[in-house]
Computed example of a mutant assay.
Amino acid sequence: MKIAGGCRCGAVSYRSISDVQVAIYACHCQFCQIWSGSSFALHAMLPKDAFVLEGATVEYSYQDQRQVAHHHLCASCHTRIYNTTSAAPGLWILRAGTLDDRAALSPVAHIWVKHKQPWLSLPATLATWPESPTPEAFAAALGAGD
């Protein structure tokens, strides 16, 4: 499937140049709660070389527990578009809310549920982990979005 999206103000856009498999997952970590201003953030891990990005972005980088993350935001409205991390080389962690077609978004997995808000109930049929899963377990769960 080809996908496209962008920031709130329209200054930054992206589009896939090839078909990509989109499997959405929800992260309930405290950082995602703060960054999103919500109880979790929706993401999709996609190959970085499958995209063309247009428009000016600014980067915010940090290191946490031996992992380095680089977040890319619209230089005008500061919508967070994607990040890269040393934990997943060669992949974009795309903010699913920036996709043009968001209507059918439904997570196939939930991570960092030890920080999940207590009022939120998750379907028992979806993969969940208290923290980050192993790369193998995560790949298997995201493959469930086929």
Results as ranks from 00 to 15, higher is better:
residue 13 S to G: 10
residue 40 F to Q: 10
residue 4 A to M: 11
residue 77 C to K: 13
residue 142 L to N: 02
residue 90 G to E: 12
residue 99 L to N: 03
residue 53 L to P: 03
residue 141 A to V: 09
residue 17 I to F: 03
residue 71 H to Y: 00
residue 134 T to G: 15
residue 29 C to P: 02
residue 91 L to N: 03
residue 4 A to G: 05
residue 120 L to A: 08
residue 91 L to I: 06
residue 66 R to Q: 13
residue 94 L to M: 11
residue 59 E to D: 01
residue 125 T to N: 15
residue 65 Q to K: 09
residue 103 A to Q: 13
residue 57 T to L: 07
residue 26 A to T: 12
residue 133 P to K: 10
residue 67 Q to F: 00
residue 111 I to G: 01
residue 132 S to P: 01
residue 126 L to K: 15
residue 48 K to S: 04
residue 101 D to T: 15
residue 9 C to W: 13
residue 33 Q to K: 14
residue 38 S to M: 10
residue 64 D to N: 09
residue 81 I to N: 02
residue 106 S to W: 14
residue 127 A to D: 05
residue 126 L to A: 14
residue 88 A to V: 08
residue 2 K to H: 14
residue 26 A to V: 10
residue 35 W to D: 00
residue 127 A to P: 09
residue 94 L to Q: 03
residue 74 C to M: 05
residue 51 F to D: 01
residue 44 A to V: 14
residue 117 Q to K: 12
residue 95 R to Q: 12
residue 4 A to Q: 11
residue 117 Q to D: 02
residue 46 L to S: 01
residue 58 V to F: 10
residue 84 T to I: 03
residue 50 A to M: 04
residue 67 Q to H: 10
residue 84 T to E: 12
residue 29 C to M: 04
residue 139 A to M: 08
residue 27 C to M: 02
residue 101 D to A: 15
residue 62 Y to F: 14
residue 22 V to R: 01
residue 51 F to N: 02
residue 20 V to M: 02
residue 37 G to I: 00
residue 59 E to A: 14
residue 82 Y to G: 02
residue 68 V to Y: 11
residue 26 A to P: 04
residue 79 T to P: 08
residue 36 S to E: 04
residue 82 Y to L: 07
residue 142 L to K: 00
residue 142 L to F: 09
residue 138 F to N: 03
residue 109 A to I: 08
residue 47 P to K: 02
residue 31 F to W: 05
residue 41 A to N: 07
residue 50 A to S: 11
residue 141 A to F: 06
residue 142 L to A: 03
residue 100 D to E: 12
residue 64 D to L: 09
residue 122 L to H: 14
residue 7 C to V: 12
residue 105 L to E: 05
residue 84 T to Y: 01
residue 78 H to Y: 12
residue 40 F to M: 11
residue 94 L to R: 01
residue 36 S to G: 15
residue 2 K to Y: 13
residue 90 G to A: 02
residue 8 R to Y: 15
residue 72 H to S: 09
residue 83 N to Y: 04
residue 57 T to Q: 08
residue 64 D to P: 00
residue 39 S to H: 13
residue 95 R to N: 05
residue 129 W to C: 12
residue 7 C to Y: 07
residue 144 A to M: 15
residue 39 S to R: 09
residue 96 A to D: 10
residue 11 A to F: 07
residue 109 A to T: 08
residue 71 H to P: 05
residue 48 K to R: 06
residue 132 S to L: 07
residue 64 D to H: 07
residue 65 Q to N: 14
residue 105 L to I: 15
residue 47 P to V: 06
residue 125 T to K: 15
residue 111 I to C: 03
residue 75 A to F: 04
residue 79 T to I: 09
residue 115 H to I: 00
residue 70 H to C: 11
residue 80 R to T: 11
residue 35 W to T: 11
residue 79 T to H: 07
residue 58 V to M: 09
residue 117 Q to A: 12
residue 24 I to W: 02
residue 142 L to R: 00
residue 101 D to P: 12
residue 122 L to G: 08
residue 124 A to Q: 14
residue 65 Q to M: 09
residue 94 L to P: 03
residue 60 Y to F: 14
